[in-house]
Design a protein around this nucleic acid. Structure first.
Lengths: 367, 367
DNA sequence: ATGAAAGCGCTAACAT
DNA sequence: ATGTTAGCGCTTTCAT
């Protein structure tokens, strides 16, 4: 019998494969699902037939019968925030590696969250949910909780769910300390409004650094912009805050810890419009290490975004198989990446002034 | 009978609703699918019961029975390219509006494309595929073609599929013309290697502009970087190309059309490292209008990315219901956005030098 | 180890 | 207009 290669016609089911291989559908299913109790011979025969017929299981029939969706959905703020996009890469890569599907819900407006959560929660639709950095309405939390679908939070924290985040306090502390040790006093801070946890924690870390090093704190050392989108972590807000600082004239701080790279970008723009040079006149350390930071030669606290994405997926997958795990909060320590904006580098060939506590930069090591 | 609110327990099917409402499952299904032939009274009764029981249809059972997936997948280059991210926003928004699911496949490496295509092509998995800007191996094209799943290409073109793209030739022509009319001669071009269609077309547009305006062309007016990731549309490549130009010394062009904003960013960095000021010494016009362009005050050719995303979705959806449509190529005309890098603006308050053919900038009008 | 049969939860064709 | 029933294509007992 000449094994003729069939064209992948429309409806080719497990029954066709079974008939062609002279076995029952059960066996075919077992083979396809790597069930142990199939003899190597039949297994091979079935596999051959399946290949010859170019058989493909129907995704949704499988999902229905198995009662699991093999998909994870990510609900992520989408107002072009590079920070999330980089995490998303890790998420996507890992999800694919594991053979799951990623269904993406992009939130442009907080009102959308509830709708997306409802959708994700629809019977059987997803096996797990990744929720990025959003303060959830109580109502939503309740729904999430009662449905029992695994949820992991990224870049936020809540007592009810697993979370992956970064040690904001430590990061702010390290950044500020770096500036202090460089002798760039006084060091101010550009922060986001205290509506988000990261903003609060970073402020505390900043203050603690001042305290520890015997530097006096004063309220006009910290400013926030007015633009509130993205919780104030946006370029305009950074610009606005720096403009305010510049109005202080002589009394303006000589260095700044800025709570996100994107705000730092705005701040630097404000500085340069006022003929203030970075790092000559003003030293700056940012937070996040988005790709842009490299372009701007910005010294910053790196959040391992890609890794965070990977981990978030791993965690949600773990929770899928083990219900009733303890709630786990994973925290990454940000790393100080020294580039030019802080003035620690003597010159562009990379020579660095001696400076304790500085973790060496390691460009591009993540990917 | 007291209508007691049930907790959404695990398995609540259409049968439960039917029983509780004293109708058959068919009727329930009809109600849920807005089938006309149901009396308003029964409809209401069913709806009430469904609501009280907090019934949710099982996604995959529906998809299996209906034989359609209500999902669209997007296969998109994922090496942090802001251009695609902005299109993706349009895609995501529209897909959600239409009640579909977006499953995202991010390609970091061209080798992954085939795997993702196979996955998307799996029986029943998706109703349509959006393919972003990738030169597809012949083999992949064939598979896509024979399965008959609607495909639309974004930012590339192929005779076999619908596509959404931008008039590269026209854009390059307009950008170059703008520079010529500003009198910034000679005007050079930073291009990407001619492996991608956009690079080829933009070069042609550039040359045509020179020709039309009686400016002589010469090969050393156009350079390309060495970094090849993202087909050469990356920051490093822009930097490298500009470094090469700078080596020309006095003979270096006084203005550049640069084939993407991200390259322009690198080019500007190279310039500033060499004490060359933009736009005072060198005028620049980019291409794309990614969010960054605004930050850089870059004059550029805007591609309506968000709109392109919307349109791509609409097209693929249209094709789902109407098989055998003619293949359609939709082309957007890019718009010149005048900011500061071309030197056309006299001062920062927005006063503009008279300059024909300039479409007025309209920041942020898209969203 | 394998086949037969009973679901999985829904839709749609067919009666009435 | 509505109830009944036969699929949709697969997995998973339950026999053997």
């Amino acid at each position: 019998m000449v094994p003729k290669k069939e064209i992948a016609t429309h409806k080719l089911t497990i029954y066709d494969v079974a008939r062609e291989a002279n076995v029952g559908v059960g066996t075919v299913s077992r083979v396809l699902n790597n069930h142990p109790s199939v003899t190597p011979q039949t297994r091979q025969r079935v596999l051959d037939v399946a290949a010859r017929l170019n058989y493909q299981p129907h995704t949704y029939a499988q999902r229905l019968a198995k009662r699991q969706s093999e998909t994870i959905s990510a609900i992520i703020p989408f107002f072009t925030n590079y920070f999330f996009i980089e995490i998303l890469q890790g998420v996507q890569d890992r999800i694919s590696q594991l053979g799951y599907d990623l269904v993406l819900y992009g939130v442009n407006n907080l009102d959308q969250v509830e709708g997306y959560v409802s959708r994700a929660l629809q019977r059987g639709r997803v096996d797990g949910i990744l929720l990025f950095s959003m303060k959830l309405p109580e109502k939503v939390i309740l729904r999430l909780k009662e449905t029992n679908v695994p949820v992991v939070l990224v870049d936020t924290i809540s007592p009810y769910f697993d979370s992956i985040s970064v040690a904001n306090f430590d990061g702010a502390y390290a950044a500020t300390t770096h500036l202090i040790e460089l002798g760039r006093l006084p060091v101010g801070m550009v922060n986001a409004p205290l509506v988000s946890t990261p903003a609060v924690e970073r402020l505390q870390g900043y203050k603690h650094a001042l305290e520890t090093h015997g530097v006096e704190y004063s309220d006009d050392l910290v400013k926030t912009g007015y633009s509130t989108k993205q919780d104030g972590f946006n370029r305009e807000a950074g610009y606005e805050a720096m403009v305010d600082f510049i109005k202080m004239g002589e009394n303006m701080p000589k260095a700044f810890f800025i709570s996100s790279d994107i705000q730092a970008m705005g701040a630097i723009a404000a500085l340069s419009e006022n003929e203030l040079r970075v790092p000559d006149d003003i030293a700056i350390v940012g937070f996040d290490d988005i790709e842009l930071a490299r372009h701007l030669k910005l010294t910053t606290m790196r959040q391992p975004m890609y890794q965070m994405g990977i981990l978030a997926v791993d965690r949600v997958v773990t929770r899928m198989s083990n219900t009733n795990l303890e709630i786990l909060h994973t925290t990454f320590s940000p790393t100080l990446i020294v580039r030019e904006s802080c003035g620690a580098l003597r010159n562009s060939d990379g020579t660095r002034e001696p400076s304790p506590r500085v973790t060496p930069s390691s460009e591009g090591s993540l990917r």
